[in-house]
Amino acid sequence: MDDLLIGTLLPGAVPIHRQNVNPVWRGNVTLGQIRRQMYVKAVEPRTLAVEVICALVGRSIGLPIPRPALVRVTDRALPGVIGSMVFFGSESVDNPDLKQWLSRDPDQAMDQLSQWSKLIDAGCFDEWSGNADRHGGNILYGGGSNFALIDHSEAIPRNLQVADPAPANLLLTYAAGDQSPKTLDVLIKKAKTSCQPFAGASVRDEILAILKGLSDAPTVDSLMAFLHQRIHALMLLISTRIGHAQSSLELQKK
Rank of each mutant, 00 (worst) to 15 (best):
I150L: 06
G62E: 09
R46Y: 15
I34F: 07
A109G: 08
A77M: 12
G123Y: 01
A132C: 10
N131K: 11
V81Y: 02
E51G: 05
L56G: 07
E91Q: 15
T173E: 08
P64F: 15
P165K: 12
Q37F: 11
L171W: 02
V43S: 11
N146T: 11
L48C: 10
D111T: 11
A69S: 12
P45V: 14
P167Q: 15
E154L: 13
G144A: 14
T47R: 05
P157A: 09
A55C: 13
A148W: 14
D178R: 10
K41W: 13
R158H: 07
F147H: 00
A109S: 12
D94N: 14
Q108C: 07
C124E: 13
P96F: 15
Q33N: 15
S129K: 09
S84N: 15
L31P: 01
G32Y: 13
Q100E: 10
T47M: 04
M85T: 13
M85L: 15
M38P: 00
R36A: 02
I53K: 00
A155P: 09
P79C: 14
I150Q: 04
L140Y: 09
S60T: 05
D111E: 08
R36Y: 04
V71T: 05
A148C: 09
P106C: 03
A55S: 14
L31V: 13
E91K: 10
L70N: 05
L78Q: 01
D105C: 06
S84I: 15
L31C: 05
E91Y: 08
N146Y: 07
I139W: 00
L98Y: 06
F125G: 02
C124Q: 05
